[in-house]
Write a protein that binds this DNA or RNA. Structure first.
Length: 235
DNA sequence: CGCTTTTGACCCGCGC
DNA sequence: GCGCGGGTCAAAAGCG
């Protein structure tokens, strides 16, 4: 079910060192048959504006396939047409902002669960909470995890980011032609979730949203991604 | 047989 | 308070 092989290039330059990134940035790799993939990322957090500024420094560094979404309408810093300029020469990215409005305006994370404490509530399968634990779930819902979202042009819905995911739900959302899929990291004590959805404006574009931080390296899950250790160690 | 996916139901937050 | 919509649960089915 996973997509193509992992990439080897990690855009660590996108991440401000003080920025509480939700998870090690996945070395996403799109199917090699899609040379024109132009994924772009968009950090979601209460420091997103700053993150955006950092991202703005690397407009020319697109060799890794990831680049910022400055055109997203978040905050006052988002200027409507900036995207076109920021993404100039990257036609696949420009023009998909529209439905991003739902995303861009969407979540701004307000709480960042401590990486370690975040998992101490746990059991190997925290989501299999008993009815008695539902109360905790409610609280958890309010406390949103840091999120990280990006879009890619790909034929496959789920990109292989080196982690192992289990699908736990799928839902048709309003104003979207395609259902949204919900995934959880299968690793013990890891609460990271991922949402995958194709844009209604362009079915080739896949919007992926990560929520939470991985408490492990992708290598521990998937031996095939062992050669990405170096990339992740930078985090 | 164990793990994953599917899918309808349920829960909860939010806007009106 | 009510309805809507998003997110999650959990049983059943599918798959290797």
């Amino acid at each position: 079910m996973e997509g193509g092989q992992l990439g080897t290039c990690l855009p660590s330059f996108l991440v401000p060192d003080h920025y509480a990134f939700p998870l090690p940035l996945p070395p996403l790799q799109l199917p090699s048959s899609q040379p024109n993939n132009k994924p772009f990322q968009m950090p979601f957090d209460d420091v997103q504006e700053e993150a955006g500024n950092h991202a703005g420094m690397l407009s020319s560094s697109d060799h890794c396939g990831l680049y910022p979404l400055q055109s997203l309408p978040f905050g006052s810093s988002a200027s409507g047409g900036a995207g076109a300029a920021a993404c100039g020469g990257k036609p696949t990215a420009v023009g998909f902002m529209p439905s991003c409005s739902a995303v861009g305006a969407e979540e701004v994370c307000t709480s960042v669960a401590p990486t370690t404490n975040g998992c101490n509530e746990s059991n190997s399968a925290w989501w299999k909470a008993s009815a008695a634990e539902r109360g905790k779930m409610k609280v958890r819902r309010k406390m949103r995890e840091p999120r990280f979202c990006f879009q890619t042009r790909s034929d496959v819905d789920v990109l292989d980011d080196g982690y192992k995911w289990r699908k736990y739900g799928q839902k048709v959302v309003k104003n979207s032609l395609h259902p949204r899929s919900y995934f959880r990291c299968t690793h013990s004590n890891c609460r990271v979730k991922k949402r995958v959805e194709r844009l209604s404006t362009d079915c080739r574009m896949v919007m992926t949203t990560y929520e939470g931080r991985h408490t492990h390296s992708p290598c521990s899950d998937d031996a095939s991604s062992g050669d990405h250790t170096d990339c992740f160690s930078s985090f």
